[in-house]
Computed example of a mutant assay.
Amino acid sequence: MDTPLRTLVKSLTWQALGLMLMTLIGAGVTGSVAEGGGIALAGAGTGLVAYALHERLWARIRWGRRG
Rank of each mutant, 00 (worst) to 15 (best):
D2V: 14
T3I: 01
T3R: 01
P4N: 01
P4W: 06
R6G: 07
T7Y: 08
T7C: 06
L8S: 04
V9G: 00
V9D: 00
K10T: 10
S11H: 01
L12P: 01
L12W: 00
L12C: 05
T13H: 09
T13Y: 11
T13P: 07
A16N: 04
A16S: 11
A16Q: 04
A16L: 14
G18Y: 11
G18K: 08
L19D: 02
L19K: 03
L19H: 04
M20C: 14
L21F: 14
T23V: 12
G26N: 03
G26L: 05
A27K: 12
A27D: 09
G28Y: 02
G28T: 00
T30K: 06
G31T: 01
G31K: 00
S32V: 03
S32H: 03
S32P: 00
V33P: 06
V33G: 05
V33A: 15
V33S: 06
A34V: 13
A34Y: 06
E35G: 08
E35I: 14
E35D: 13
G36R: 09
G36L: 14
G36W: 08
G37V: 00
G37T: 01
G37F: 11
G38I: 08
G38T: 06
G38S: 08
G38Y: 08
I39S: 11
I39T: 12
A40E: 02
L41S: 05
L41Y: 01
L41F: 08
L41Q: 01
L41V: 14
A42F: 12
G43N: 11
G43Q: 09
A44D: 01
A44I: 03
G45Q: 00
G45E: 02
T46D: 06
T46P: 05
V49W: 10
V49T: 11
A50F: 13
A50D: 05
A50G: 07
A50N: 06
A50P: 04
Y51I: 05
Y51V: 07
A52E: 08
L53S: 06
L53M: 14
L53Y: 13
H54K: 05
H54I: 05
H54E: 08
E55L: 15
R56P: 06
R56N: 10
R56K: 14
L57I: 11
L57G: 05
W58R: 14
W58L: 15
A59F: 08
A59C: 11
R60A: 14
R60D: 04
R60H: 08
I61Y: 11
I61M: 12
R62Q: 11
W63S: 09
G64V: 02
G67H: 09
G67D: 10
